[in-house]
Amino acid sequence: MSAGVTEGRLPAAFARAAADGRAALVTFVTGGDPTPADTAAILDALVEGGADVIELGMPFTDPMADGMAIQLANLRSLGAGTRTADLLDIARSFRARHPQVPLVLMGYANPMLRRGADVFAAEAQAAGVDGIICVDVPPEEDDALGPALRARGLHLVRLATPTTDAVRLPTVLEGASGFLYYVSVAGITGLQQAAQASIDTAVARLKAATDIPVAVGFGIRTPEQAAAVARVADGVVVGSAIVELVGLHGSQAPYHIRSYVRSLSEAIAVSRKELA
């Protein structure tokens, strides 16, 4: 496990949630959707709705692990002219407004590596980013990105999936930090949710193998689903459902997002108490 695992905003956010007896709510939106100017208010709405961790998606022309909702968000963002520099500006101003809320950039390798991993890591760190999720840099290609992030004290959030078996799991955990993102469905974002029983089993298996928090995502959209996952996981990730609200409401989305995210955070807050 890398240094810095228990330091910084990201572990602190999970620790705070754990101390409250609940899972952390991790929310995703695509940066620059519908325009770069709209993103700040959308991120604020996530925080106001009770999100503990913000994943800011970096748009890419070829989001091959994403379903239609996030594909369209990528197209809207790029269509509005969003550049990597805009994403970093969005991160920087978020950090100024929300000094304690962890911010994770999520996206695909090519925009991250384009000007060199070291440049990307330095710029992300300077913008107040806490961690990176890169969909298509698996542990086998870690040296393309991992060392640059670690040198800057940025968390590299790794993904585990239903196809990550016991033999492979240590490879995924080696060098993972911040949290472990369990992709509960073998598939693309935004489609069906996995059966709760399989999530329960997988989370138990992952938590037995690592001390870092385990957050579960893919296909979670209702407060009931979020609460069910929150009973077993350290974090609940919701993305496509929020991105769809941006698609539906455009620059009017913050209002809708705030109340939707609040419905999730309220359900998560009491989910373990209901169980007890």
């Binding site: 840099v137 698996p138 542990p139 239903p162 492979r168 995924v172 992709v183």
Partner: peptide
């Protein structure tokens, strides 16, 4: 052994696919 031709090639895939590729 890692599928690299010089600095090119490799296995830049999502984790779901990685076990299949292996």
């Amino acid at each position: 052994a890692r599928g690299h031709f010089g600095s090119f090639g490799g296995r830049y895939v999502a984790e779901t696919l990685m076990p299949l590729v292996l």
